[in-house]
Design a protein around this nucleic acid. Structure first.
Lengths: 100, 100
DNA sequence: TATGTATATCGGATTTTTCCGATTTAAAGA
DNA sequence: TCTTTAAATCGGAAAAATCCGATATACATA
């Protein structure tokens, strides 16, 4: 599946989801208290603590970002670790710059 | 009032509004049948014909783009002419590239 | 002044998005 | 196996977005 600009723009239409992406740019600044090494990605529960929304709501926001191709999920044991999909993000930004 | 990234991203969350902006990049290609000179901007009714939505809906979409600062309005007589606000669009794209 | 044209705004129906608590699923550890 | 923990999914309420037709406003012209 190729990247869908409309789906990405809809994913970026909620400020919390944009914050998630921005926080993941600098994990050591925003998730310095994570028990697991930041190289694994950011654990879902970290976002809950930081944004104050419920577990199910955060899970849905992360799923929206993943469906749009903006983040990738890495499941280890009972945890889910998230990281930015830099390739897709860069492709989207280039696409936007050249078409918008 | 400064540019509001969240408001802009919400404005871009509807594909019709993105199309409006893209069409305005190349007026001579997309609005070659406009009675008024394209240098005045694009007349509101041109968007209606091209997207098939009702007059009131198109007016609302244009208002959303203007509120976000993505387009500028030029009223002449009974007409409203729209053009892209290139400065704000460029600022937004730079902001997005450096923060997202 | 009366009529026609272009756009904005209003009122309301429909759809989509957002959010939460409860439940389910899956893995970890006692 | 039983319990705990983490995350996904379900069900439904509330809020926001979308869309249209009708009406209002503003300008042009007869």
């Amino acid at each position: 599946m190729t990247i869908d600009k409309t789906e990405i723009l809809k994913a970026l239409a909620h400020p919390v989801r944009v914050s998630f992406l921005e926080w993941m740019r600098e994990p050591e600044q925003h998730f310095c208290d994570q028990a697991h090494p930041l190289e694994m990605g950011i654990c879902a529960n970290q976002f809950e603590k930081k944004c104050g929304l419920s577990q199910s709501t955060v899970s849905a926001h992360l799923a929206t970002l993943e469906k749009a191709g903006l983040i990738k999920t890495n499941r280890v044991g009972q945890w889910a670790f998230y990281r930015r999909d830099e390739d897709n993000i860069a492709s989207f930004l280039n696409d936007l710059k050249s078409t918008l």
